[in-house]
């Protein structure tokens, strides 16, 4: 699972999709998830990384990242594999 390569993502969480012209905002943790996904990080490794950085249990991280990825799919922001 990878973020579409033509998405423009700014450092402060502004996302532009040139294919549709749609814009999005993401919060701090969302930026971190996007960056990991852009690099091709797998979900398990992504959760490991977040667990080291943030004060949250693994269950919460898995669940909330899962929901975030689901919304990325809804908005067609992920590459079809």
């Amino acid at each position: 699972m990878k973020v579409r390569s033509n998405l423009a993502v700014s450092e402060d969480g502004f996302v532009f999709d040139p294919k549709t012209g749609e814009s999005y905002t993401v919060n701090e943790v969302g930026i971190s998830v996007l960056q990991h996904l852009s690099r091709g990080t797998q979900i398990d490794a992504l959760v490991d990384a977040l667990e080291k950085e943030y004060d949250a249990d693994r269950y919460t991280l898995e669940k909330t990242v899962g929901d975030f990825v689901q919304m990325m799919k809804e908005y067609n922001l992920l590459d079809h594999e």
């Binding site: 814009s23 999005y24 905002t25 919060n27 971190s32 080291k52 975030f68």
Partner: peptide, 16 residues
């Protein structure tokens, strides 16, 4: 110290 966790969200902007 670990950073405060906020659930990741993505919100579509509806300009105008």
């Amino acid at each position: 110290e670990k950073k405060r966790f906020e659930r990741p969200i993505i919100t579509k902007l509806n300009t105008g």
